[in-house]
């Protein structure tokens, strides 16, 4: 009897939390979605000066997609994303060769150096670079040079962790030893045996890094500013000029980053499923 009561009580409480839970999750999801949805609606209407918007239009998007400055800033952003991430990948792959094939003792130092940008983030990084190089008259005082350098450092933690996890999961040290026993040089083994095996692992972390650079405003604004406007700086410059156009830019930025995120999640999910099947 007592048992039955207990069971009923537990079942009832689970039922209740589930309903309260659903409501709570919906409220949180709504809080998170509303600002973006409002921007989306705003971008699709002529005016929104009353409770409800009026006059559906695609004019904002038309204007945006025929704006040469917009395309230029998208182009710059893509160059910054692709080049910086590529540089970081090469730097870390080379450095990780030393960790897996030459001396493992380098690993903690590398980890420390790679995690500093994660702890300090954009503001400190950008002003340190400006303070050090502006007006020195060397090649390093070139704004572009500073910006690429800064982005390379900014994504260091993400790329490093991606590559490290990938190397650990295939036991790179053992693969190199095996290849060496078969008469293959260590570096060749690293390039021809290890790298092809970690490509998919690198892919996920580099996509993540791309989306971080795509969403960056601090470094671009502090280091390059209007000299080399990326998409975020372009948005900021337009905010006071035209709110219609700005809302369309916000939507475009969000859609691009959301697509990249969806791809990352999908690849991660696939990787997890693979791991489960193997185990």
């Amino acid at each position: 009897m007592a048992h039955k009561n207990l069971a009923a009580r537990t079942a009832a409480s689970v039922q209740r939390t589930s309903l309260a839970g659903r409501v709570f999750l919906c409220v949180v999801a709504a809080y998170l979605l509303i600002p973006f949805l409002a921007t989306l609606v705003y971008s699709l209407f002529v005016e929104w000066t009353d409770i409800l918007p009026s006059g559906f239009t695609l004019r904002n998007y038309q204007e945006l997609f025929t704006n040469a400055v917009f395309w230029a800033s998208i182009g710059r952003t893509l160059v910054l994303c692709l080049v910086s991430v590529a540089i970081t990948i090469v730097l870390i792959l080379l450095a990780m060769y030393v960790v897996v094939a030459v001396n493992r003792k380098v690993a903690p130092v590398m980890q420390f150096l790679c995690m500093i940008p994660y702890a300090l983030q954009g503001v400190i990084l950008s002003i340190g670079i400006i303070s050090l190089y502006t007006g020195t008259g060397t090649i390093l005082s070139n704004r572009m040079f500073m910006l690429f350098g800064a982005y390379t450092i900014l994504v260091l933690p993400y790329i490093y962790q991606g590559i490290r996890n990938a190397l650990n999961s295939i036991d790179a040290g053992m693969l190199i030893q095996a290849a060496e026993m078969l008469g293959c040089g260590r570096f060749r083994a690293y390039v021809q045996v290890v790298l092809p095996n970690i490509l998919s692992g690198i892919l996920v972390s580099s996509l993540l890094a791309e989306s971080i650079i795509f969403g960056d405003f601090v470094l671009a604004n502090n280091i390059a500013g209007t000299n080399y406007q990326n998409i975020q700086v372009f948005l900021q410059a337009n905010m006071d000029v035209s709110s219609g156009l700005s809302s369309a830019i916000v939507v475009v930025i969000f859609v691009v980053v959301a697509l990249v995120t969806a791809l990352v999640l999908k690849l991660q999910g696939a990787a997890q499923n693979n791991a489960k099947e193997q185990a």
């Binding site: 540089i87 090469v90 730097l91 870390i92 080379l94 450095a95 060769y97 030393v98 094939a101 030459v102 380098v106 590398m110 150096l113 500093i116 940008p117 300090l120 400190i124 990084l125 340190g128 670079i129 303070s131 050090l132 390093l140 500073m146 350098g149 800064a150 390379t152 450092i153 260091l156 260590r186 570096f187």
Partner: peptide
Amino acid sequence: GWLALVPFVVVVALFEIMPLLQ
């Protein structure tokens, strides 16, 4: 093999460590 570490060290020194010291 240590040479592989050089590019990483150079970039980290130029854009991470030295700016912080500055």
